[in-house]
Design a protein around this nucleic acid. Structure first.
Length: 246
DNA sequence: GCGACAG
DNA sequence: ATCTTGTCGC
């Protein structure tokens, strides 16, 4: 593990009171190369669980996102916890480090997950669900970032992507709440969901310990006003801010 | 073989 | 991801 500077946040100063955990082997280490990374994903994919959860009963959600520096090679990860039903920020943490893996479509998690897990470990709050900016099962090997983070933490995680990666979906109805299945290789790997009437839809997929219907319902509840779920918007804002600071 | 390819 | 202003529309 490289050096990494962490910053606690809004709520608890006492670190590590929230989510943490060793998780299964491999997911917290850096693969030697792309082949090893792919093998690790194939080995981990069977561990993903789909559990139905009551989206309306979820009260604490953590949004996760990463920002990259324009000039140097720093990267900042943020985890922001929001409380339903108004989604006000109740806790947050950040971690600054360097990418530990090159950007390769499909191996995205090996780049961002280490810093994200570091930020999550700093939280003083234990969220019911975590939301990643990216995909879960909607991935070539059915093990995208949301699955990687979910299995590593053994916590409920879902992914919300802004642009399609794998699979195809028909254009959902124009109204908020309309959706269509995201299908890849004959398999439903996610859902194309319209969170705002007349606005480009988002792509929801299962990360871990949550099923697709629950993930979509929760995504809609977390996005009462903007296209992206509030936790993701807040995490996006915080990691950029953290990068702007020294 | 060629192009596409989450952030 | 990042480089980047104003502008059209609800």
């Amino acid at each position: 593990m490289d050096e990494g500077t962490c910053g606690g946040g809004t709520g608890g100063q006492a670190a590590a009171a929230g989510v943490d955990g060793p998780g299964p082997p491999g997911l917290r280490e850096r693969p030697r190369d792309a082949d090893e990374a792919r093998a690790l994903q194939e080995r981990s994919a069977p561990l993903v669980r789909h559990d139905a959860i009551d989206a309306g009963a979820v009260s604490l959600v953590a949004g996760l996102d990463v920002a990259y520096s324009a000039d140097d090679d720093r990267l900042a990860a943020a985890a922001v916890v929001l409380a339903a039903p108004e989604w006000e920020v109740v806790d947050s943490a950040t971690a600054v480090s360097r990418p530990r893996f090159p950007y390769v479509p499909g191996l995205f998690a090996f780049r961002e997950a280490p810093a994200l897990l570091e930020a999550v470990a700093q939280l003083g709050t234990r969220p019911d669900v975590l939301v990643c900016d990216g995909f879960g099962l909607a991935h070539p090997r059915r093990f995208g970032l949301a699955c990687h983070v979910g299995v590593a933490l053994d916590r409920p995680v879902l992914g919300v992507g802004k642009t399609p990666f794998v699979g195809r979906a028909e254009e959902p109805g124009r109204e908020r709440g309309a959706w269509s299945p995201l299908v890849d290789d004959g398999e439903v790997v996610g859902r194309c969901l319209r969170t705002r009437t007349g606005v480009k839809p988002v792509y929801v997929s299962v990360g871990h310990r949550v099923d697709l219907a629950s993930a979509a319902a929760l995504t809609l509840r977390m996005a009462p006003r903007y296209r992206l779920p509030e936790p993701v918007r807040q995490a996006d804002r915080l990691c950029r801010e953290r990068l702007a600071a020294a």
